[in-house]
Write a protein that binds this DNA or RNA. Structure first.
Lengths: 206, 206
DNA sequence: ATATTTAGCGTACAAGTGTACGCTCAGATA
DNA sequence: TATCTGAGCGTACACTTGTACGCTAAATAT
């Protein structure tokens, strides 16, 4: 059978990945995980780890990529699903908060490694965030007709305000999260409205 | 001589604190520091550590407090110094970015422990951030005459956008930081302007 | 002068770490 | 069929870690 071997390897690879995600919690950051811990959780021998990843950093980068991808797809879906009807701001914020509630480990990973101790990590998270910013900026450009630079600055402010609300939400009861969403929505509206005013000042024709 | 003993103790206590701050860098987060490392840097025996702090967490909380206090005082000074003349937004952002350039370890500590693995840490950083928000909200209230809730929401958005710019700045050349400041200033103006518009809508009399 | 307190040290230990090395044996290749 | 490849394992080693315990000596209290 062709690929049976490779199939098995992929399977253990994901056992490792899942083990790492499982170990992440409010009390355990990725950088505090040890290789042995991960392999223990994955049910393999410590040295087998190296058949799949060079070191813990390589695994971590994989986690960031996978996590970021999942989140991005979710956001894109949400934006398309509600195309036209309903406020994009509200939909986006609520989708995002939902994601955080469902898989807080992923969000925490991004949050922590954004200011982590490895340049490669920070870069990887930065890249994920840029994806968000770019997608949102494009959306703003298309629907509002802003010039690129203004749209990007605005998008960036929005993405980070939402991230910030998410960070706040991590330590709260689900009941308090609705209020956080409301606050974030208000903040995004400030940004949107302010950007609009500035634009009217500079390009009165638009 | 009264207090000679206590004086010496304070001195070693600060040897420990300084040692910890020194060890913090782009590559070393607080949570990655070991007790032995800190004492080695401080030039004392590992077990002597316990004469001053219960454990590494207690030391870390002290660092957060001291760092936050220093930053807050700086910001307050800046706001008072330029009272009236010059844009508060610009002055605040630039003072903040200067602080980050001068003592990046302190800022990095706050940034990392905000999403760290210990609740006490997160709480401590949250408290520091709240100080900023409250002070800024009061300022906005007094100068702009906003109601408390709007002022707080606006202040929070501003503080976090600045923090975000700071996080970005940590990995950049000083030459690139000016552009980051400009961007942050623009984002804060969006927020200020947007909040203003919203307020006009709701309380046309003000 | 004597007794008490205590900051700092050295030793010691159990526990955990990353990873080098060589083996096995199932699956792929020829 | 026989040969080769490589995923996974077990052992082993040199380190680092936190901290318990008891000592010393200097500063303080009596």
């Amino acid at each position: 059978m062709s690929g049976n071997r490779a199939q098995q390897k992929q399977k253990t690879r994901y056992r490792i990945i899942d083990a790492a995600f499982n170990l992440l919690s409010q009390e355990r950051s990725y950088s505090s995980l040890s290789l042995r811990e991960v392999t223990r959780e994955a049910g393999i021998a410590p040295t087998s780890f190296y058949r799949h990843f060079d070191d813990m950093e390589a695994l971590g980068l994989t986690l960031v990529d996978e996590g970021g991808l999942a989140l991005r797809q979710l956001m894109r879906e949400a934006r398309q699903r509600l195309q036209g009807r309903g406020s994009v701001i509200q939909i986006s914020v609520e989708t995002f908060m939902e994601f955080i509630e469902n898989s807080p480990q992923v969000f925490r990973l991004l949050l922590q490694e954004r200011s982590g101790t490895t340049f490669a990590f920070r870069q990887a998270v930065f890249r994920e965030l840029q994806y968000f910013v770019t997608e949102l900026a494009e959306y703003i450009q298309q629907t509002q007709g802003y010039p690129v630079s203004e749209a990007t600055i605005q998008a960036e402010a929005m993405v980070f305000l939402v991230f910030n609300a998410g960070a706040d939400a991590l330590d709260r009861e689900p009941s308090e999260c609705a209020a956080l969403s409301q606050k974030a929505i208000m903040q995004l509206r400030f940004v949107a409205r302010g950007a609009d005013e500035f634009l009217k000042l500079r390009h009165p024709t638009l």
